[in-house]
């Protein structure tokens, strides 16, 4: 992000600042935000890092209560050596690999369709595609949980009359089913972002492509798509960050199928550590690992996309 934003930033500093308003006034405007930022983001993370370096150990036979001892990175080692945690990470990785390309592919496809010359009623289609984003994540997951449940679901029964038997909530299908829920929720949001970018593709470029004999489809993939690479990069970044958050969908589906265990993804593992196993230091360590991974991944994505788009 910092690499990406250095462009506009530079032009902002070139602009003459308002005279006579220096740091002191800026402070008044910045203090409220940075206070909540400190309280709601920085302090919790620092506290969690501190907590993750200690462990409660019961002396002897478990009498006389627990004492807190410094274990350094011991909790991190324990978390990373835990089979269920690693299995959860594997599922999260598989989810990302399935979800990110599917979502961006679907969103780009619809954005290009909307931008096609022959598309009608563009505003109405945009609104319909965006509508699922107005549905809270919990409700979206619930709706789909029932659309996957045999007996209730019109999809399952329609497929059954067609001779196809699919258990969307089975151990093997539940992950793709979850990808579908997330695509449903987020595709429209990204369609609007990409479509807005497509609208600002210079007309002359498209005109030139047409004169050179490129058809609509060719233009869409060889001219328009590369030109909106920056917007695609932003969409990619936020999709990757979003997919690491995976919690709501599996948590809801765990009420509908036993295929989703209580430690199914790292976030659920951390939740389980804190509330069912009462191991707060390990919960803290797991959260920090996840945050670090997210930071690393976002950095890789910004690096990758800003290199790809710089002329």
């Amino acid at each position: 992000m910092s690499v990406r934003t250095s462009g506009p930033r530079r032009s902002a500093t070139k602009r003459r600042p308002i005279q006579g308003t220096g740091g002191r006034t800026a402070t008044i405007f910045l203090v409220p935000f940075f206070t909540v930022f400190l309280v709601a983001m920085i302090a919790p993370v620092i506290y969690a890092v501190g907590l993750s370096l200690f462990a409660e150990q019961r002396s002897g036979l478990g009498f006389g209560g627990a004492e807190t001892v410094f274990v350094g990175l011991g909790n991190y080692a324990d978390v990373l050596a835990n089979d269920t945690f690693i299995a959860g990470f594997g599922r999260l990785a598989l989810y990302c690999v399935l979800y990110v390309p599917t979502l961006l592919g679907v969103a780009l496809g619809f954005a290009l369709l909307l931008d096609a010359v022959v598309a009608k009623a563009k505003r109405a289609f945009q609104l319909l595609l965006f509508l699922p984003h107005a549905v809270p994540g919990v409700i979206a997951a619930l709706i789909w949980a029932y659309l996957y449940t045999p007996g209730v679901s019109p999809i399952v029964s329609a497929l059954a009359t067609g001779g196809i038997q699919i258990d969307f909530l089975s151990v093997h299908m539940v992950l793709p089913s979850m990808v579908n829920i997330a695509v449903w929720e987020w595709a429209g949001y990204n369609v609007i972002i990409l479509f807005t970018a497509l609208q600002s593709v210079p007309r002359e470029v498209l005109e030139a492509a047409r004169v050179d004999g490129a058809g609509e489809i060719r233009t869409a993939f060889s001219i328009k798509t590369p030109l909106i690479a920056p917007a695609l990069g932003v969409a990619l970044l936020f999709t990757v960050i979003g997919s690491l958050q995976l919690f709501t969908e599996p948590k809801i589906l765990s009420t509908a199928t036993t295929a989703v265990t209580s430690t199914w993804v790292p976030n659920m593992w951390a939740y389980d550590a804190a509330f069912n196993r009462n191991n707060l230091p390990q919960a803290a360590a797991a959260s920090i690992i996840l945050a670090l991974l997210a930071g690393l991944l976002s950095w890789v994505v910004t690096r990758f996309t800003s290199k790809g788009t710089s002329r």
């Binding site: 983001m41 969690a48 804190a274 945050a291 950095w299």
Partner: peptide
Amino acid sequence: TVLIGVLIPNTATVIPLYLL
């Protein structure tokens, strides 16, 4: 720092928030 805050997934700070 604000931009770093944008990049940290919400759910990664939820458990630390709870602990604090």
